[in-house]
Design a protein around this nucleic acid. Structure first.
Lengths: 183, 183
DNA sequence: TTTTCCATGTAACTCGTTACATGATTTC
DNA sequence: GAAATCATGTAACGAGTTACATGGAAAA
């Protein structure tokens, strides 16, 4: 549902062909949304079938022909419907990768710290990618900013966990060794 | 992958039958993870088939028979493997519901504010549900705390957006009316 | 006595991804 | 001459959800 909204929103800014679109999605927006090429092509077809977009086959020079999609009036109506629905709803971000955190006491703290630093590096890479994204239209920029904000929150949380672990490391290393021996 | 980790982690704390487990998942953990009943049953079967858990059919009184799952040594090994992998990885939280934010300038700010307040109410409900969750084991509590933290970040971001909109409302209401007339 | 709870599942379906297919063209 | 880019798709697969099926027991 939000994928349709995204595509309609992008087409609303200016007409585009599939490859161009999937370029945009693979570029700066990759940090916020993922919508793979085949999905994009599929959705564009579907949108055209629904009458939300007009298709025109164009050809520049002797490059492969493009299918350029233009949003229609019905498309704009649908866009607004989706937009209203999506603005008013909220689906909680289920942080799937955090299940591990719940069970980290099953490993020695020193190892957990090492592993979490790997995690931290990946998170940092995401952050930098989001921050270094080239300028975009106001709206899309807001999306990227939000993503940046979220990643930063996540980073500071992760750091707090690591710090806490560092603190308890010396204290718990004994009890952990004890646990191992008890087994 | 993190679902298996979650189930193994829970079984590691103490043996459980499917219904009990899906109760836990539907209760306090519902705000963090969603894993529906059929999926849980399916995964438990699979885990038993993989030798990660032992099954024992038990019966208390004249209630329907239960299939109680106990983690095995291989299960524990797998648990640790998954745990290490999951601790070291990070998949960026793609906030799907935020696509709408990127296009909110397509609607009059006053309407956007109304819609975002609906969103805010849902977010608040999630927050309260997460906060009011009954006490859990250390680890699971950490998971819930993280979720709470994330939701709070999200809330304050949303509030900042709404505030900004309130500020620009009077300024942009004219230009928006103008836009409408131009069409 | 009807609804809710306990307890297990199956089957169909949706949605998206991965991997593959095609073919010309420009760059190295 | 090989590799990457442009440009479109198809087909198979996977993972999870929804809806349905079953049946006894307790609570309302």
């Amino acid at each position: 549902m939000e994928r349709e909204l995204l595509l309609l929103g992008l087409l609303r800014q200016h007409r585009m062909h599939g490859y161009e679109l999937s370029g945009v999605l693979g570029g700066a927006l990759a940090s916020c949304v993922d919508l793979k090429k085949p999905t994009a092509y599929f959705l564009l077809d579907k949108m055209a079938a629904n009458g939300w977009a007009r298709v025109k086959e164009t050809r520049e020079g002797n490059r492969p022909p493009r299918k350029t999609y233009t949003i229609t009036t019905e498309g704009e109506t649908e866009f607004q419907r989706l937009l209203r629905a999506n603005l008013a709803e909220f689906d909680a971000p289920k942080a799937a990768s955090d299940v591990a955190i719940a069970f980290m006491d099953a490993l020695p703290p020193s190892e957990v710290i090492t592993l979490l630093q790997d995690r931290r590096a990946i998170l940092l890479a995401h952050l930098e990618r989001a921050q270094s994204a080239p300028q975009h239209s106001e709206g899309l920029q807001l999306l990227i900013d939000h993503q940046t904000y979220l990643l930063q929150s996540e980073l500071s949380w992760l750091d707090s966990v690591i710090t806490r672990l560092r603190g308890t490391r010396k204290a718990t290393v004994k009890s952990h060794t004890k646990q191992l021996k008890e087994k």
